[in-house]
Amino acid sequence: MAQIIGGLGTSHVPSIGVALDRGLAGSDDWKPFFDGYDYPQKWMRDQRPDIAVVIFNDHGNSFFLDRVPTFAVGVADNYAPVDEGWGPRNIPSFKGAADLGWHFADQLVESHFDPMICREIEVDHGLQVPMELFCGRPDEGGEWPVKVLPIWVNTIQFPIPTPQRCWEMGEVLRRAIESFPGDDRVVIMGTGGLSHQLQGRRAGFLNPDADRQWLDTIASDPDHWRNMTREDYVETFGSEGAELMMWLVMRAAMNRDVSMLHKHYFVPASMTGAGCVVLENA
């Protein structure tokens, strides 16, 4: 059966992709941020995962408000980067782990989840940026070193799902991976956050204390975060920082006891608290 080799958490701020596009990763402004990803990139090279499950939200790029799915699961063979208004980015498409996607969809529906199942869809910076941060950008003409299974969570239009529901989906994800025939090595990437707010008079809101507490305790005390309400997330992390609850899908798919191998925080990346963790089952 397939095996979960680790869980990663990270921000997916679009400006990170822009900084990479413009070759600014080594600039004074950005270097301290990108330095924190050296360890996760080495961990990925050493661990050689076959598949990355990426939990993220679309940002009004692949879904419009005409039809908003609460959860969506990708079963495509290929996911192209979507044009977010700036034209196509010069990164390769993502090969899909379609078999695992269908297997997960089956398990979800049997477990009384109601996903939308997507066979033809593009992916925005919510998936692109974590892949670049953890895998590095492939050389011209090259490919990503892992296949992806995208999981979209609606964090934009209310009602958004509860943190508790995100947690429960992570439990099904674990069962799905651990019952998936073969010997694929699977890494799970929970993405989004950390604190930020883009609109309203509270725009520019940052909460570095809460961000640090999140990074310090997501490994050791996930129940604290699991038990918070959606309102708590919006208040603590900002309206867009509430995305952070998507990390719970990843955390719930791991053991109760995990080792945190790495933790990194940087503020502000663009208008956002940013960072990452690397977790392994203890």
């Binding site: 934009i156 609109q199 309203g200």
Partner: peptide
């Protein structure tokens, strides 16, 4: 930090 003279709520949600 509400500013007077503006009518965007502090934290507008897409409801």
């Amino acid at each position: 930090q509400n500013q007077p003279g503006t009518d965007i709520p502090p934290t507008p949600l897409l409801d």
